[in-house]
């Protein structure tokens, strides 16, 4: 079980209010991702759930039980830290055993769980090494191993992959997703990488300055962002936001169109401009189009990797009307 409910939770550090009243329910078995820009309070929220910080007001319930004043150890949650926070003076085996030792679990049960965890995480050969002798990815797996053996009611991850290189990040991302499928335990995962959020989450919570901007499945957020902030935050490259006369034609303050929903042509189209930087990724090319007369910002367009365009070329763009997002003056979806 791992149903976590936050009820009007707030957090202030001295005078500074980091989390305004916030309500959130995380269902048992869900993979929930908190995303948002740096400093928006993701870590703070996670640490409140973990019990590493006190809430200023409000209530946290875990499986219906009031956990607001429980010490971290009593909450039955496990956390994987950004820095892994492995105990450097203990072998991998001892690291993984530590929570069980603290819980006073019998030795053979401990050994049994260590073996099982090591096997599933490919750590069997490293059990007698110290964390200092492991690679970043292996350390990460030890941290996860230390979390699973406790069989917690939920896992908390705070940007666990941000210290890994790009290739390893993709691997670990898959491994964590696999783990979730296998264990079916609630996971709360903090990241500011929206690719991680999109690929891993059942439910994404977008935060800005401690406020929840939107909660929904990855595709919900992609297809119908509730406001400009979410629209700009989810999706890569970012959605193009156009204000002024062009938006007024649609009767709103702002329209948004994703780079992949603009059709590009060298001959004709609704809008036109000059090609600036072209980022060739192989399969796709992202064009930054200037002098389009729709605003200051260049428009980003995704085109086929084979399209023969060069810096300075004239180009025509046509938005897919059905994929157009409309926002009112307050930035809310119209």
């Amino acid at each position: 079980m791992g149903r976590i409910t936050l009820d009007k939770v707030t957090k202030s550090f001295g005078e500074v209010n980091v989390i305004p009243p916030l309500d959130l329910t995380i269902n048992d078995g869900e993979f929930v991702v908190f995303v948002g820009p740096s400093g928006c309070g993701k870590s703070t929220l996670l640490r409140l759930i973990a019990g590493l910080e006190d809430v200023t007001s409000g209530q946290i319930r875990i499986d219906g039980e009031d956990a607001t004043d429980m010490p971290p150890a009593k909450r039955g949650l496990a956390m994987v830290f950004q820095s892994y926070a492995l105990y450097p003076h203990m072998s991998v085996r001892k690291n993984i055993a530590f929570p069980m030792k603290m819980a006073g679990m019998p030795q053979d049960e401990q050994n049994h769980r260590i073996e099982a965890a090591a096997k599933s995480l490919n750590l069997t050969d490293y059990l007698d090494r110290r964390p200092g002798q492991l690679s970043g990815g292996q350390r990460q797996r030890v941290a996860i191993g230390r979390a699973i053996v406790r069989e917690p009611s939920a896992f908390l991850f705070d940007e666990p992959l941000s210290n890994l290189d790009a290739a390893l990040r993709v691997n670990m991302r898959l491994e964590i997703s696999e783990l979730h499928n296998a264990l079916k335990t609630t996971m709360i995962y903090v990241t500011h990488d929206q690719v991680e959020a999109m690929t891993m989450a059942d439910k994404i919570v977008v935060l800005r300055a401690g406020n929840i901007e939107q909660v929904g499945s990855p595709l919900d957020l992609y297809h119908s962002p509730q406001n400009e902030f979410v629209a700009g935050f989810i999706g890569s490259p970012k959605m193009n936001l156009i204000r002024g006369a062009e938006a007024a034609k649609h009767g709103v303050a702002t329209i948004g169109i994703r780079p992949e929903h603009l059709a590009a042509s060298t001959e004709s189209g609704l809008w036109q401009g000059t090609v600036g930087v072209a980022e060739h990724l192989g399969s796709d090319t992202f064009l930054h189009v200037h002098d389009h007369g729709l605003g200051e910002e260049p428009l980003t367009v995704r085109v086929d990797g084979e399209m023969p365009v060069r810096h300075g070329d004239r180009i025509f763009l046509t938005p897919d009307e059905s994929k157009l997002h409309r926002f009112d003056k307050q930035g809310l979806r119209a």
Binding site: A73, A85, P99, M102, R146
Partner: peptide, 14 residues
């Protein structure tokens, strides 16, 4: 790093 001590606290250490 304080995180290591926090990890211990999460792991149930008094």
């Amino acid at each position: 790093p304080g995180e290591i001590l926090e990890a211990a606290r999460m792991d149930g250490a008094s």
